[in-house]
């Protein structure tokens, strides 16, 4: 049973090694970093759940769990970049509805998967550019800009359709994106498409953030914008990039969502923004910018996802879900604060 829960975590560990700080061995990593603390809490949770529920560690449940968190994770990748770059995007919740509705309408009109996907991504780019333009061009706080976009996009999603845009195109490939499986891999099982997409997005951006100049710029701009500016980095350009990436990834997750729902719902994504931002911050990113890793985000998303999965597997009243989520956030932030003090960080 334990082997399966470890496998759940394997997705994160290769990149985890890549971001390991030079001075840290595995033990220090475990106890001295937010990622390490999250990993310990997650492992403990997996052990407890696999003892309590016979199905928890089953292949079926692991993949259901991973499919469930794929939407949060894809958006959280963009959000991590943005928060590291010292901005935030609250509009991702309404994006799930807005992009979903627009993409489904396009799919119905064209019966072409790529046209639908292109429109979704275009919508993501546009929303990202609008957010960036208002934040940087008009110098309005991104919290307010994207909060305003959150309400405006929800309003537009309501305007574009009375309720939900039903699937009138019946494209097989579309269905596969949401609930299909990539070919059977021996020893692992049938991997759902959303999980594959998430893994690709995660690895690509983990490499971008840790191995490329752009990645270093994101940290520099978030950590000390003035210094970054002086050393010739375009703060404007880097932040716009982060906004657009967040918009596009939110659109990708919206596309997978409509494939999973088989309809574009104008009421989709309520509270999604807090779920995503909560996970990113729990993963060790700071709204003050310059801090945070994708491995931390992944572990936080896994932790929250596993928790919600476990609550239902054990048949616990769903009233507990919120309370337990809140407590887990509090415990993780408390452990992080203690670790920082132990390490001597402020």
């Amino acid at each position: 049973m334990g082997a399966d829960s470890i496998r759940t975590l394997d997705v994160g560990s290769p990149a985890g090694r890549s971001t390991r700080r030079p001075l840290a061995g595995l033990a220090t990593w475990l106890f001295r970093t937010q990622e390490g603390v999250l990993l310990l809490v997650l492992l403990a949770l997996c052990v407890v759940l696999s003892r309590l529920s016979p199905v928890f560690a089953s292949e079926r449940n692991v993949f259901v769990l991973l499919s469930q968190i794929s939407l949060t994770m894809i958006t959280a990748v963009g959000m991590t970049l943005l928060i590291v770059g010292r901005e935030v995007d609250l509009s991702v919740g309404s994006m799930q509805a807005f992009v979903g509705v627009v993409a489904m309408q396009t799919l119905n009109a064209t019966s072409n998967l790529f046209a639908g996907l292109a429109v979704a991504i275009l919508a993501g780019v546009v929303v990202g550019l609008v957010n960036a333009g208002l934040t940087l061009g008009l110098r309005i706080n991104s919290f307010i800009v994207t909060l305003a976009m959150l309400t405006i996009l929800r309003g537009l999603a309501y305007t574009f359709t009375d309720a939900a845009v039903q699937n009138a195109h019946n494209l097989e490939a579309f269905r596969a994106i949401g609930i299909g499986f990539i070919a059977h891999i021996p020893g692992v099982g049938r991997i759902p498409w959303p999980v594959v997409i998430t893994a690709v997005v995660f690895v690509a951006f983990a490499l971008l953030l840790t191995r490329t100049t752009i990645g270093r710029y994101v940290y520099a701009v978030g950590g000390n914008p003035r210094a970054a500016e002086l050393s010739g980095v375009s703060v404007w350009g880097v932040k716009t990039f982060c906004f657009v990436v967040t918009g596009v990834l939110a659109a990708v997750s919206a596309f997978i969502l409509i494939a999973r729902l088989n309809s574009g719902q104008n009421n989709a994504g309520f509270g999604f923004e807090l779920q995503v931002i909560g996970a990113v911050l729990l993963g060790g990113a700071s709204l003050a910018g310059g801090q945070g890793t994708l491995v931390g985000t992944l572990l936080a998303v896994l932790l929250l996802g596993t928790l919600n999965n476990g609550i239902i597997l054990l048949g616990i009243d769903s009233s507990w879900q919120l309370a337990v989520n809140g407590l887990i956030i509090l415990v993780a932030v408390l452990l992080d604060a203690r670790r920082r003090r132990a390490v001597g960080q402020e």
Binding site: L281, L287, L322, N325, G326, I329, L330
Partner: peptide
């Protein structure tokens, strides 16, 4: 020494 945004977000859910 916990971050207030995260702490009160946790409190909001809890």
């Amino acid at each position: 020494g916990m971050n207030s945004l995260m702490t009160t977000l946790g409190m909001l859910f809890a």
